[in-house]
């Protein structure tokens, strides 16, 4: 099996990937827009353009927002069908992920089911934030 396609952090996203490696799901929020959280990471607020933003540790909780089950697995993802999911985080932003510790079936994967982050270490720098039933 070819090696899984993995992210290559940039200076603007490194804090996020370092957080995952440290077991923290880190989001960013704006000092102005009523502390509104945003994702993916960037060094300014997409709501108002302010550069006064901070990174913080999110709860890691969310719900299953939508998904598909890929019946034709990408070669680096193994041979079994898997769900490509979007989780609605408790803090507001959504992110793409995979759902683990759960059968990859429409019956087991119900929209709005509670999820919690489950970190999956891939190598020394990359740990992926996957989710599992809470």
């Amino acid at each position: 099996m070819p090696q899984r396609m993995l992210p290559e952090p940039t200076p603007e996203t490194r804090h996020f990937w370092e957080g995952c490696a440290a077991g923290e799901l880190r989001l960013q929020r704006c000092a102005h827009c009523a502390g509104k959280s945003y994702f993916p990471p960037r060094p300014f607020c997409p709501g108002c353009g302010s550069r006064e933003v901070e990174s913080y540790k999110a709860s890691g909780k969310g719900v299953l927002w939508s998904y598909v089950i890929n019946m034709r697995p990408r070669p680096d993802m193994g041979t079994e069908p898997y769900a490509i999911a979007v989780v609605q985080l408790a803090e507001g932003p959504r992110m793409m992920t995979n759902i683990v510790n759960c059968p990859q079936t429409p019956e087991a994967l119900q929209l709005d089911m509670p999820l919690k982050v489950s970190f999956s270490k891939q190598n020394d720098t990359i740990t992926l934030p996957l989710f599992e039933p809470a």
């Binding site: 899984r4 396609m5 993995l6 992210p7 290559e8 952090p9 940039t10 996203t13 994702f39 993916p40 890929n70 697995p73 990408r74 680096d76 993802m77 898997y82 490509i84 999911a85 992110m95 793409m96 992920t97 995979n98 992926l128």
Partner: peptide, 14 residues
């Protein structure tokens, strides 16, 4: 892999 898609979507197998 350093694009936003490459970092925040492609690792999950689309």
């Amino acid at each position: 892999g350093s694009s936003l898609n490459g970092q925040f979507e492609m690792p999950y197998g689309p």
